[in-house]
Amino acid sequence: MQRETTGLLSPGTHVVEVDGLSQRYHVYGSGPVCLAVPGGPGVIWESLRTPALEEFLTMVYVEPLGTGGAQRLSSHPHGYTRERYARNLLGLLDALSLPRAYLLGHSHGGFVAQYFALRHPDRLSGLVLFGSAPVTGPEHMAEAGARVQEFVERNEGQPELPRVLAGLQAVGGATDDEQITAALRDLLPAYLAHYWAREHEFKAWRETLTCTYISGLDEDLTPDTVDDRDALPSLGVPTLVVVGRYDVICGPRWAQELNDLIPGSRLVVLENSGHLAHVEEPEQFAAAIRDFVTETSV
């Protein structure tokens, strides 16, 4: 198998073997290497593609195990824990012969990135937590419920609002790829700051989004919950926290808490974005990361 970093970081789609499983990833751009982990879990990797970042970074868009065309575990749809995803990230860095790289995690990908950074800080030049949170569970869900209510009040009278709310309800009951994809497309306006005012920009993108059903349970059907509050104050990796002002699922409350917990981190709030700032304010999003890379690569 080819192990030269140059070839494995050339533009295009690549596959390497990690722990006996095929790990697929997609390379665009040039500059310092940044691994990008999408959300969900299960949302297609293209959902995180950001051409504005590719102008100054070699973006390695990771296709997480079990998602899209990536190889599935024998326990699918179970077993996709943060530990399992982090193990594959470490294996990918090794396969690419990269002693260090930047790591960008969005949403659930942020949970994975936090886990990885706490255990392998020596392998990171910097960490970008985008739309992430220090915890999941009842407290996180209660905050999300309050933020959804704010979204409803801002968009009262929109004819499509019932469809969006039905999509949000359907996510929890989805049990296959078709159901979770339909729910994602239905709820998408809640993840954007001003969807209906900019529908001409986002409608086609919305209709092409796909998601793989990942249960969120370990192989023994135990929930893979997140609570990094006690650990994050020990994080020694330069960290940028990015959040959209109107993010309903991992909003400013959680970004501020991450920023307070992580020593020396910096916080950027994008005022005209929801959970998907990289498509709503791509230039501002990229500028924040460019500044962070410039400061940490000196």
Results as ranks from 00 to 15, higher is better:
216 G>N: 03
133 A>C: 03
156 E>K: 13
120 H>K: 14
190 A>V: 01
265 S>C: 02
103 L>G: 04
96 L>G: 06
160 E>I: 09
286 A>V: 06
180 I>F: 00
214 I>N: 01
164 V>I: 15
222 T>S: 14
12 G>M: 09
80 Y>V: 08
209 L>S: 06
174 A>P: 09
224 D>A: 12
293 V>H: 01
268 V>Y: 04
68 G>V: 10
224 D>K: 02
64 P>W: 04
253 R>Q: 11
96 L>E: 06
107 S>Q: 08
204 A>G: 05
182 A>M: 07
11 P>L: 06
163 R>D: 13
33 V>C: 06
230 D>R: 11
240 L>I: 08
84 R>K: 10
22 S>H: 12
85 Y>I: 04
122 D>S: 13
79 G>P: 11
9 L>M: 09
56 F>C: 12
77 P>N: 09
187 L>H: 08
281 E>D: 13
37 V>F: 12
23 Q>A: 12
202 F>V: 02
42 G>I: 02
133 A>P: 01
193 A>S: 13
262 I>Y: 03
27 V>N: 01
153 E>G: 03
112 V>T: 15
137 G>Q: 06
272 N>S: 13
214 I>S: 02
37 V>D: 01
125 S>T: 12
104 L>C: 10
227 D>W: 08
30 S>T: 14
16 V>A: 08
43 V>M: 14
153 E>S: 13
199 E>W: 02
44 I>K: 11
49 R>P: 01
170 A>P: 06
43 V>E: 09
116 F>L: 11
94 D>Q: 15
69 G>N: 11
58 T>D: 05
253 R>V: 10
139 E>F: 00
198 R>V: 03
60 V>E: 06
235 L>N: 07
66 G>S: 05
153 E>H: 11
256 Q>D: 12
89 L>Q: 02
188 L>S: 04
240 L>S: 04
260 D>P: 00
297 S>I: 01
1 M>N: 05
105 G>V: 04
171 V>L: 14
131 G>A: 13
143 E>W: 02
93 L>M: 11
30 S>Y: 08
61 Y>L: 14
